[in-house]
Simulated assay, not measured.
Amino acid sequence: MTPGPACFALVQRFEGCAKKQIDGNFTAYPDPGTGGDPWTIGWGTTGADIKPGVIWTQQQCDDRLAADITSFAARVSALLDGAQTSQHQFDALVSFAYNVGVGNLSSSTLLRLHKAGDFADAQQQFGRWNKAAGKVLPGLTTRRAAEAALYGS
């Protein structure tokens, strides 16, 4: 499957393209949950190339978002292994994986329930993933509710 517009909209809504400078460029910033790693830039982009002092243009942020979502979608598709999945379910799962990581999705009860076709219980699992560094974050609570709503639509 490929990510649809709802996936991109959801990721952009919750990641935001943060830390815009007066010159219009964006600078890397520490993870809000940990105050350190992983360093982030643009639309929630992390990776070995993102560290203090990195500066990107808007185009670099947008291009990396498209590449990253495509990459996450391919990995989520592989995890689904042919399980029945609607476009909205897929988009919600890709947004979730973009935020918490594919490894966390792969070992989650959410994925296990989805693959078993238990979509109602899978939808309820999104809300359990609202913590960073052991603390409930209101932004994550809101994001998980939006992902669950998309998943169930």
Score class of each variant (00 low, 15 high):
residue 20 K to C: 08
residue 27 T to G: 07
residue 62 D to M: 02
residue 48 A to N: 00
residue 131 K to I: 14
residue 48 A to W: 02
residue 11 V to A: 08
residue 49 D to Y: 10
residue 82 G to A: 14
residue 2 T to E: 14
residue 148 A to I: 12
residue 129 W to M: 12
residue 127 G to D: 13
residue 21 Q to I: 09
residue 59 Q to Y: 11
residue 87 Q to S: 12
residue 70 T to L: 04
residue 47 G to C: 02
residue 67 A to Y: 09
residue 70 T to G: 06
residue 125 Q to E: 15
residue 101 G to M: 01
residue 28 A to D: 08
residue 101 G to T: 14
residue 82 G to C: 14
residue 146 A to R: 07
residue 74 A to N: 15
residue 69 I to P: 09
residue 21 Q to G: 02
residue 88 H to I: 12
residue 121 D to L: 08
residue 26 F to A: 07
residue 133 A to F: 02
residue 144 R to D: 09
residue 78 A to L: 02
residue 141 T to Y: 13
residue 106 S to A: 13
residue 116 A to Q: 07
residue 27 T to W: 02
residue 66 A to P: 02
residue 81 D to K: 00
residue 124 Q to P: 08
residue 74 A to T: 15
residue 81 D to A: 01
residue 60 Q to G: 05
residue 43 W to L: 07
residue 11 V to Q: 02
residue 41 I to V: 15
residue 31 D to T: 05
residue 11 V to K: 00
residue 19 K to G: 13
residue 74 A to K: 15
residue 6 A to S: 11
residue 117 G to K: 03
residue 130 N to M: 08
residue 91 D to R: 04
residue 32 P to E: 03
residue 8 F to D: 13
residue 66 A to C: 06
residue 17 C to T: 09
residue 127 G to C: 04
residue 92 A to E: 11
residue 80 L to P: 09
residue 74 A to C: 13
residue 95 S to A: 03
residue 61 C to V: 14
residue 75 R to A: 10
residue 50 I to C: 04
residue 81 D to Q: 00
residue 43 W to R: 05
residue 139 G to V: 11
residue 36 G to F: 06
residue 145 A to T: 15
residue 91 D to C: 00
